[in-house]
């Protein structure tokens, strides 16, 4: 009787061992690989592109960061595009952000550029996919673009782009070296 019981258990266990071999999944990854900031001069002219691409995701190969020079004393219309290029065709994350505009806000911190919001979320607070970027005198500096998820948009200064009171967590944070000629 007891022997039978243990044979049974041994059988159950061996079934579990055999049946538990793993099948690999092709996980659809919720990844952001690419941020492109396209700056089109308001008065016409060639657009300038700033881009950050990390096709293999976190770790592995280092990201590729590029920024074309901007013209002095110029106003640009800025438009951000966020993609997941690890998929084919690539995923448009911009649309996801637009769909959840109340829970997102981009922040722009720069020593050389002035960036203003030109779009609004459903509550009338800034989102930052569309912006106005102005340059003054020639020089070099940095531009940091940050996407916050679930920021507190009503905290002091956050509507005007002050990131320090925003809270939330960072979904994107990239920094460009900017040259104004």
């Amino acid at each position: 009787m007891k022997k039978n019981l243990f044979y049974c258990l041994a059988f159950v266990a061996s079934i579990m061992l055999i049946s538990s071999c793993t099948k690999e999944d092709s996980n659809d990854e919720e990844l952001i690989t690419t941020l492109t900031y396209k700056l089109t001069p308001v008065g016409g002219g060639n657009a300038v592109t700033l881009s950050f691409r990390d096709i293999d995701g976190d770790g592995g190969n280092a990201p590729v960061i590029s920024a074309s020079p901007l013209k002095a004393n110029t106003v640009y219309n800025g438009e951000l595009t966020i993609l997941n290029e690890s998929e084919s065709p690539s995923d448009d994350i911009t649309a996801e952000i637009k769909a959840e505009d109340k829970e997102h806000q981009f922040f722009f911190e720069s020593s050389i550029l002035k960036v203003e919001y030109t779009d609004k979320d459903a509550n009338g607070n800034p989102l930052g996919l569309l912006t106005k970027v102005s340059t003054t005198a020639p020089g070099t500096g940095k531009l940091k673009v940050t996407l916050k998820h679930e920021p507190n948009k009503t905290a002091s200064g956050v509507k005007d782009g002050k990131i320090s009171n925003a809270g939330g967590e960072t979904d994107i944070e990239v920094e460009f070296n900017i040259t104004v000629q």
């Binding site: 538990s20 071999c21 793993t22 999944d25 996980n27």
Partner: peptide, 21 residues
């Protein structure tokens, strides 16, 4: 002791720990 670890698909994120036996 036989342990089998399986990452259930559909998380939409990279697995921290691999599948293993």
């Amino acid at each position: 002791r036989v342990n089998v670890n399986y990452n259930i698909p559909g998380t939409g994120s990279l697995t921290l720990l691999p599948d293993y036996r």
